[in-house]
Simulated assay, not measured.
Amino acid sequence: MKVYELRNVSYRYPTGEWALRGINMEVTRGETLAIVGPNGAGKTTLLKLMDALIMPTEGEILFEGRPITEETTTDREFRRRVGFLFQSPDVMLFSATVLEDVAFGPVHLWGREKGLRRAREELRKLGIEGLADRHPYSLSGGEKKKASIACVTSMEPEVLLLDEPTRDLDLKNRNFVLDMIRHWKDRGMTVVVVTHDLRLIRLADRVYVVNRKVLFEGTPRELFSRPELIERANLDVPEIVRLFHMLGLKEIPLSVEEAVDILRRKGFRP
C-alpha cells in the first residue's frame, strides 16, 4: 500500500527561488526510504511537505490516497500517525523538563494522566528515564537527540520522517540511532530519512537522490554501483566500493562481510 504519493511536486521559497521542481516519489507501507543529496538540495523542505508543515506551490501529495491540504495541518489523527524528527533537537525541546517535553503531544492527544504515563513509558523504553526531571538545555547532544526521539515516539506514530538523525553525534550515539531505526524497520514501521550517513543508507530498502529534482531512484546497492552519482549526492564513496571498482568487479558489497564473501567467490585469497 502506498503511504505517500508525490505528483509533480514543486515548492518555491517566498524569495522566488525554487527549492524543488517536479518531484515524483512514492513511499510504501513498511519500507525504509533514504533521501540523499547535497546541502541546499531541498531535502528538508521535502520532509516538511510530507509532514504538512508547508504546502506545495505546485503538484499534490497524497497520504494513503487522500490529498494533503491546509486542513491536514491541524488534523490530530494525521499528527499522531506521522512523526517528524527535526535535525536540531532544540526545536523540539522547549519545556522546563524532559518529561514535560516528551508528554506534550500525548497530553494534548489523550489527556494528562495517560499522556504522562505514555511519556514515562517511552523514556523507559529508550533507557533515558533518568533524564525525566532534567532541563533540556542541561543535556549533552546525544541526550538531547534521545529526548527528541522520545518526543516523537511517545505519540505511537506509524510513519517516521527523520531529518539527518545522526548528524553531529559521536559514534556511541550514532549507533544508538541506527539501532533504533533497525528496531522500527523490524517492527514494520514506515521510515523516511534524510541523511548523509552511509551506514544509515545501507539500512534503506530504496534511495532517492535529490537535488531540487529527483536524479536517481533505486536500491542502495544500485546507488553504490555508480560512484559518480554518489559524488553528485555529496557523499563519500565507501572505500570498499572504491576498491571493487578499481578491481573491475561489478558486484558491489554493502558490508565488509559481503565484500569478503564476494572476493572469496571470485577466487581472491588472503
Rank of each mutant, 00 (worst) to 15 (best):
R7G: 00
R12P: 00
P14M: 04
T15C: 02
R21F: 00
G22I: 01
I23D: 01
M25P: 02
V27M: 01
V27Y: 05
T28N: 14
T28M: 09
L33I: 11
I35A: 06
V36W: 01
G40V: 00
T45F: 01
T45N: 01
L49C: 00
M55R: 10
G59S: 06
G59W: 07
E64Y: 07
E77V: 14
F78W: 06
R80M: 12
R81L: 14
L85E: 04
Q87S: 03
S88Y: 12
P89L: 06
D90V: 00
F94V: 15
S95R: 15
A103W: 11
G105L: 12
G105Y: 11
G111W: 08
K114S: 09
E121M: 12
E122H: 11
E122A: 14
L123M: 15
L126Y: 11
E129D: 15
G130Y: 09
L131Q: 10
R134M: 09
H135Q: 07
H135S: 12
P136K: 03
S138K: 11
K144W: 05
K146A: 14
A147C: 11
I149T: 08
A150G: 10
C151V: 14
S154V: 09
E156L: 15
E156Y: 14
E156P: 01
L161M: 02
R167M: 08
L171Q: 14
N173F: 10
V177A: 08
L178A: 07
D179I: 01
R182I: 10
V191N: 05
V192K: 05
V193F: 03
T195V: 05
L198D: 10
L198I: 15
L200I: 09
I201C: 08
A204F: 06
R206F: 02
Y208W: 05
K213R: 13
K213Y: 09
L215V: 04
L215K: 04
F216R: 02
E217W: 08
P220D: 07
L223A: 04
F224D: 08
R226T: 08
A233P: 04
A233K: 02
E239W: 14
G248P: 04
G248C: 06
G248I: 04
S255L: 11
S255M: 11
D261Q: 13
